[in-house]
Amino acid sequence: MHFLPEEASSFAGHVDALYLFLILVTAFFSLLIGTLVVVFAIRYRRKSPDEIATDVHESGALEIIWTVIPFGLTIVMFFWGASVYFRITRPPTNAIDVYVTAKQWMWKLQHADGHREMNELHVPIGQPVRLTMASEDVIHSFYVPAFRFKRDVVPGRFSVAWFQATKPGKYHLFCAEYCGTRHSNMIGWVYAMTPADYQAWLAGGNPGESLAAAGAKRFVENACNTCHGDVPGARGPSLAGVYGHAVRLSNGQTVIADEAYLRESIVNPQAKLVAGYPTIMPTFQGLIGEEGLLQLIAYIKSLSPPAPAGAAAASPAPAPAPTPERKASRP
């Protein structure tokens, strides 16, 4: 029987090292207390019914010792746990993007080039994969035990997280947050592949339309282009080059235009208004579904120069999307 799941991601070894340290601490103190209890209980067992015990009932030194040692150990655990956490929560810049839509009770996964998968995800090893996840209904949680990776997918917001597979194989994908009747059917597989196998897999299927291209269509369907067209004097700000850069707001603050900000600006436009523009944009809450939002974000991201450091090297990043007008004329 195995006691550890496979170690198949760049975090797994770090998480397991901390786990083994904690097991050692747990074993040490459990055995210490267990042994002391048993030894004392036998050594000092009552020998006659009217025996009187020795009155030893305080020791300042001992109280200090067994306060300071656990304190020191927990501080070590805290910093160790926090350092592993930082490693897991900071996405690298050269990741390939995968967009995840969770709903009762399935995982829909879309690659940037348009490949769609259901309850299965193919990823290359040796390259970070960045998940932008949305839920269409309740809270779900994307969990791959072999990667020691888990992240809740909360409706009403994007959950962005990443992992890097290190070992080719087929690994469980579970929904870890209880989501209703068929929660335990909301499972699938992650296939980690060598870069060559991954390229072959990409070439194999019919990817169809890229996410950014689908987003470009929606951009026109929802008439976003009437205000956000890239022309002088437009009623809304141009979206070219916005993603990943600072935006000055009407209240004087500055925010970085990440996925969360772009999403909020679509469903709740007045929350963080760009400086110098009127409050005329209507809300699209409920008018555009989660997949549509992901497509629009992918489109807006495609209008920005690609991330530095080889993002395009292994991922078939979409070519800069055509202008919405031209795109719309196609079926």
């Binding site: 975090f11 770090h14 998480v15 901390l18 786990y19 904690l22 601490v25 747990t26 103190f29 459990s30 927990t74 655990m77 805290f78 160790w80 746990g81 926090a82 350092s83 592993v84 956490y85 490693r87 897991i88 949680s141 969990y143 035990p145 020691r148 990776f149 888990k150 870890a176 947050e177 209880y178």
Partner: peptide, 17 residues
């Protein structure tokens, strides 16, 4: 003591739920 595993941020991500 096993509660300490859950208080450790990096480890809780794996064992949570």
């Amino acid at each position: 003591l096993t509660g300490l595993f859950l208080a450790s941020l990096g480890l809780d991500i794996h064992v949570h739920d």
